[in-house]
Computed example of a mutant assay.
Amino acid sequence: MQISLVGYMAAGKSTITKHLASQLESPSWDLDDEIAKIGGEDVADILRSKGEIAFRKLERETLLETLQLNGVLATGGGTPCYYDNMDVLLKESYVVYLQWPMKTLIERARSARESRPLFDGVSDEDLPEYIAKHVFDRRPYYERANHIVFCDGKSVDDITKEIIEKWKSQSQHT
């Protein structure tokens, strides 16, 4: 794998991955899509039917397989936070954290909450606090990335260009 994107749910990892791969003329991989292929159902259904522990095991196996491929990878929001996944990501790829202001993450998550099983049972009123705590818990993993993109106010093109510049600069020094 060349580049892996990490960040909270609804941070735009899948969108940026596709655009970045296109710019690099490289394949793109979405870990959730790969998990769905192996698991036989989409990630939301796997989480709801089998539970988070079973999902995280499948996610780990799929991550290890997918990292052997060449291209750009969109990880799941929790992927870097389980097992030694962040260590593996850093060893096998250039890792970029897509960081957004909390307000933006809450707005995006709210509009996509039906497809986010981790929000099941969380009231709309409690969602901001839930997301803030989640991001707080996950941030130490995300911040280990090779590069952090502060995405607020940037277009997909701007974010992609920044990642390519930093990645090329990094790869020239290794």
Rank of each mutant, 00 (worst) to 15 (best):
I46P: 00
E114I: 13
S49L: 13
E59F: 03
Y97C: 10
E52G: 03
P80S: 06
P80N: 03
S111Y: 13
E61Y: 06
S111R: 15
I53H: 09
G76K: 07
R113F: 04
A112V: 09
K103G: 06
Y82Q: 12
A74R: 01
Q99K: 15
Y82A: 12
A74M: 08
L58T: 00
R60G: 12
G51R: 07
T104K: 11
M86T: 11
R60D: 14
V95S: 13
G78E: 00
W100E: 11
Y83H: 14
Q68T: 13
Q99V: 01
R56S: 04
L58W: 05
D87E: 15
R108V: 01
M86C: 08
I46V: 08
S49A: 13
R108K: 09
E114R: 15
L98T: 02
V72Q: 03
K50W: 05
E52S: 04
G71S: 05
R110V: 10
T104G: 01
L98D: 05
Q99N: 01
K103N: 13
E61W: 05
R108L: 02
R113D: 07
A54H: 08
E61S: 09
P101C: 04
L67P: 00
K50G: 01
E107A: 14
R56F: 12
P80I: 00
R60Y: 13
R113S: 04
V95F: 13
K91H: 15
Y97K: 09
Q68P: 00
N70H: 10
A74V: 03
E65C: 04
K50N: 08
T79R: 07
F55Q: 04
V96Q: 05
S93Y: 11
G51E: 08
S93E: 06
I53L: 11
V96M: 02
G76E: 09
A112N: 15
V95T: 14
K91L: 15
I53N: 09
